[in-house]
């Protein structure tokens, strides 16, 4: 009996010691940009296939939501389709949180319309007119006599801010623009409404919507949003996608970040519809 007790005690102690010294399984929370969401989900999925002990959860909500969660300490990685703002940097400093920024991919922001819309291309100025509310009918941009229904992301979205800065030349969105809580909702709405127009990350493109050619040289050339055009620099609406990680979590996140920036990770980036960093 005594021997059995000794064996059990020994096994118990060994189990505790093994558990204590065994490398901890990677458990990560990623939150933020809806644009980065499909990419992060796919990267997490492929990473977890290789590293079966890892557990990575990915949530959207918008870049602003991700960075707010980062500030609150409720996510390990904030994914963002815009650069962290100065006001956010100062809040992080006040919280004693030093961070590191990594560009994991690039995205070609795409303007989408309903496939039944005859207008297949627009200049930046025309897009500015539509989204600031000055152009309200498709006939004013060469289309049918049809009311324009413009969809945008909410103000917490990095895509919202990038579109405002790059396409609207920092002008305000019109009051009639419909603000949607997620990119998927824009795709669905545009696919169901003939006069609709919206903007989404390239990876969200579906056959149910049509990606427009855009011109940034007042109509001299119209460029289609494709990975090739984004890579060769001819498509003008391209932006970096960021991961923000606290320095204190750098070691924990490193294996996953290394994977993303590796050839395998970047292959996934290309497959999902984003532009690789290398």
């Amino acid at each position: 009996m005594k021997t059995r007790i000794y064996i059990v005690a020994l096994l118990f102690t060994a189990t505790i010691i093994t558990a204590a010294f065994a490398p901890a399984a990677l458990i990560l929370k990623i939150k933020g940009s809806d644009t980065v969401l499909p990419l992060s989900q796919k990267l997490a999925e492929t990473y977890m296939k290789i590293n079966t002990e890892a557990k990575i959860t990915v949530m959207g909500g918008g870049s602003g939501v991700g960075i707010a969660a980062f500030l609150d300490g409720t996510t390990d990685i904030a994914m963002s389709s815009r650069k962290i703002k100065m006001s956010e940097k100062m809040k992080l400093q006040d919280a004693g949180k030093a961070y590191k920024e990594t560009i994991i991919a690039y995205d070609a922001l795409s303007v989408i319309v309903n496939p039944n819309n005859k207008v297949k291309q627009l200049t930046r100025e025309q897009l500015e007119g539509i989204f600031t509310g000055k152009i309200t009918n498709w006939k004013d941009v060469g289309g049918e006599d049809e009311k324009i229904v413009a969809y945008s992301r909410e103000s917490s979205s990095g895509t919202y801010e990038f579109f405002k800065e790059s396409v609207l030349a920092n002008k305000n969105y019109g009051s009639a623009i419909l603000m949607m809580p997620a990119t998927g909702a824009i795709v669905q709405s545009v696919s169901q409404t003939k006069g609709a127009i919206g903007y989404i990350g390239f990876a969200y493109l579906e056959k149910t919507v049509h990606a427009m050619k855009v011109s940034y040289d007042k109509g001299a050339t119209y460029i289609e949003p494709t990975i090739a055009n984004a890579k060769n620099g001819t498509y003008p609406v391209v932006r970096p996608l960021y991961y923000y990680v606290l320095n204190k979590d750098a070691a924990k996140v490193k294996p996953f970040l290394d994977y993303i920036l590796s050839a395998d990770g970047q292959k996934v980036v290309g497959e999902v519809g984003y532009i690789t960093v290398k």
Partner: peptide
């Protein structure tokens, strides 16, 4: 100033 975390300074 030393900021230990979000709470402590």
């Amino acid at each position: 100033v030393y900021r230990y975390d979000t709470n402590i300074k």
